[in-house]
Each structure stands twice: as structure tokens, then as C-alpha cells.
Design a protein around this nucleic acid. Structure first.
Length: 335
DNA sequence: TTCCGACAGTGGGGTCGCAAT
DNA sequence: ATTGCGACCCCACTATCGGAA
């Protein structure tokens, strides 16, 4: 709980308005979790990053690009406004938690599109302002202490992100076993700078899979070679199913060289079955299903399309026929 | 001198809202 | 009614540049 400010000086500070725009701290992508005791670690929640701005009887939810999304989360906004605090800003993530406590981005989007936002959760991981006081210059652990105190008495839907100190590698392994998105490791004594730095590290659990190259899109604007590779896989039934487009991870040189190679194996029509309503922004060229691409991605979407795919390289040593993915595999998103 | 952070620009899936078809 | 498109959200990645180390 927060003591009401009896000190007139403090009260004065409390009415001082917050900065209109507050840049959020961003994490740098890292391959390995730090094991050093200088870091604390928390679960990487998969949702919408949102600053909660409490200004008296009103609370606003602001995206990291400064868009006001309060109206999309009326229940959370109402819960925050009940705090009745002036000049207070929390940093956190709006998530849809399953019974097992895991946040699913697909479920969150689903809830938003159906306007079923009552059971969303705000997971707070930082406190930037309290009662008009700017806390961003304090060490992270101190801010977290004040955050816990503030949310000690809070509704179910507003929670503190739990964390542990040290043991980053072990936590990362457990997170991946539990099929979480990854972890965020933060320097315990770091101040909130509002930029990307290695004070905050994100270590993600990623999937790697080989896919059959079934086509490519034409480059747009200043892009050279091709835009994206269209990839697919064999179902156990022997059909090729479209798995999405992979548009990043190529050097300029590769884009030019590989397009020439693809050109030589072009064919008029797709080999793969495309889901109805597949939208192709750029013109597509289809190729014979002969080449394999190794692709890294975060997860499968509800429609069984790759999320956040990036190209790692070609697999010249394997036969495309070997790329069989059973849609009932643990990787699939069950509905 | 080298390195790193910021920025611009490319690409992805999904949702929403608006305009053109 | 459908489709295209751009703006958001979530992002990965390459290339470049200027300033810090």
C-alpha cells in the first residue's frame, strides 16, 4: 500500500504532471542466458507491451509507440483507476493467461477480436513513476521492491512479474521445456534508460525446421533479388502444405544469387495446396519442390503458419521428400 | 582505430477499419 | 459482399552512419 502524502512538498510533486511521452526500455536479443549474479530473470510474457499511466481517477494504457489503447481494455483500465493514484506509471505486458499460467499471443488476439477482454491480465514488471516521483534513476531492484509494495493489494487481473536472481541458464532451460517464449534477464542495478541496451536481455526459445521451397515473391521497392521464399512441407498423406513466407535473414548478395537459381526451376502453377484466402501482396513465382531451407521461427499460428520466421540457410544434403510434418505434432497449435 | 547503438528499410502473421471494386 | 491497402500490434534481419570507447 502507498501512504497518502501528508507532506505538503510531496503533495506538490504529486500533482506535477507526468512527461507526455515515456520511452520504454527494450531488450537486446541474446543467444544464451547470463549466469552471473548481476542479473535477475523473469519469464518473457507474450502479449502487448503497455504502460499503465495512473493520473487520479483516470488510468490510461499506452503502447510502446505511444498509442492510447485504453478503450480496448476497459476492465483493466477500470481496475487501474481504482488505485486513485496520481503521477504513477507502471510498465508491463497485457497477456491472456491459460490455466497453466502460460501466455498465448494467439489467445490474446482472439480475445481482443471478440472483445472478451474481461479475463486478461496485466503483468507488471517495472515501476517508473510513483506518486509523481520519477523512479527511473533508481536501481532495478529498488523499483521492483516498490512495485511489489504497490501491488500487494491488487485485483487478480493485475499481477507482479515474479523473478529470481542468478541461475539464468537453468531458468532458460526450464522455460523452454515448458514451451514458454523465453526469458528476460535484467541487470539488477540498472537504471531505466528508455532505450535498447544490454541491461535487458531477451533469450528466446526458438524452433528450427527445414522446409521445402515452393516459390518466391518479387522484390518490392529497393529490395533486390526476391522478397520472400514461400515454404511448405509434406503431410503424412503426401501432399505439400503451405507453411508461410520467409522474408528475412538474407544478405543482399544471397538475394541476387539465389533468385537466379530459383528462376531455373520455375513452373507455372503451385505444387502446394494454399489455404483459402491466402493474400499475396507481391507477384509470386512458383518453383519445383526441390530445394530445402532451414528456417528459425517462434511458433505456429492458429492457422498453422510460421510466426516470426527467418532464413538460416539452405539444406543441400537432404531430399525434400524427407520433410514430413505431422500436423498432430506437439508443435501444432491445438484448437 | 574499432565497435556499438540508432535508424531506415526490407520482409513475416494477425487484426481492424476504410475505400474501391 | 469482397478485396485491397495501410495502420497498428507482435516481430527478425541487413545495411549504414556517426559517435563513443
Amino acid at each position: 500500500m502507498v501512504k497518502p502524502s501528508s507532506n505538503p512538498k510531496k503533495a506538490e510533486r504529486a500533482v506535477a504532471s507526468l512527461p507526455s511521452q515515456i520511452p520504454v526500455e527494450l531488450a537486446t536479443l541474446e543467444e544464451e542466458a547470463p549466469d552471473s549474479d548481476d542479473f535477475l530473470h523473469e519469464i518473457k510474457f507474450d502479449g502487448y507491451r503497455m504502460l499503465a499511466r495512473l493520473e487520479g481517477s483516470t488510468a490510461r494504457l499506452i503502447t510502446r509507440r505511444d498509442q492510447d489503447w485504453t478503450a480496448r481494455f476497459p476492465e483493466l483500465a477500470a481496475a487501474f483507476s481504482k488505485f486513485g493514484l496520481q503521477g504513477t506509471v507502471l510498465d508491463g505486458e497485457i497477456v491472456k493467461l491459460a490455466e497453466n499460467g502460460i501466455s498465448s499471443f494467439a489467445a490474446l488476439q482472439d480475445a481482443l477480436s471478440k472483445e472478451q477482454t474481461a479475463d486478461l491480465t496485466y503483468v507488471a514488471f517495472d515501476l517508473l513513476f510513483l506518486d509523481g516521483e520519477d523512479l527511473r534513476g533508481l536501481p532495478l531492484e529498488e523499483r521492483k521492491r516498490r512495485l511489489s509494495k504497490l501491488l500487494a493489494v491488487a485485483p487478480e487481473t493485475i499481477r507482479v512479474s515474479e523473478y529470481r536472481t542468478g541461475g539464468g541458464k537453468a531458468l532458460y532451460q526450464r522455460a523452454c521445456q515448458l514451451r514458454l517464449e523465453g526469458i528476460i534477464s535484467k541487470r539488477r542495478d540498472s537504471v531505466y534508460r528508455g532505450t535498447r541496451s544490454d541491461d535487458w536481455l531477451k533469450v528466446k526459445c526458438l524452433n528450427t525446421e527445414e522446409f521445402i521451397i515452393i516459390g518466391y515473391t518479387e522484390p518490392q521497392r529497393s529490395r533486390v533479388g526476391f522478397g520472400a521464399l514461400l515454404v511448405g512441407y509434406y503431410t503424412p498423406g503426401g501432399e505439400i502444405r503451405f507453411a508461410g513466407k520467409v522474408g528475412t535473414g538474407y544478405s543482399r548478395e544471397f538475394l541476387i544469387d539465389f533468385q537466379k537459381r530459383l528462376e531455373r526451376i520455375e513452373q507455372a502453377n503451385p505444387t502446394a495446396v494454399l489455404p483459402k484466402g491466402t493474400y499475396m501482396r507481391a507477384k509470386v513465382h512458383w518453383v519445383k519442390p526441390r530445394l530445402l531451407a532451414q528456417v528459425e521461427f517462434t511458433e505456429w499460428t492458429r492457422d498453422r503458419i510460421l510466426r516470426h520466421p527467418s532464413f538460416l540457410g539452405l539444406r543441400e544434403d537432404k531430399d525434400p521428400r524427407e520433410v514430413v510434418i505431422d500436423t498432430g505434432s506437439p508443435n501444432s497449435v491445438s484448437e
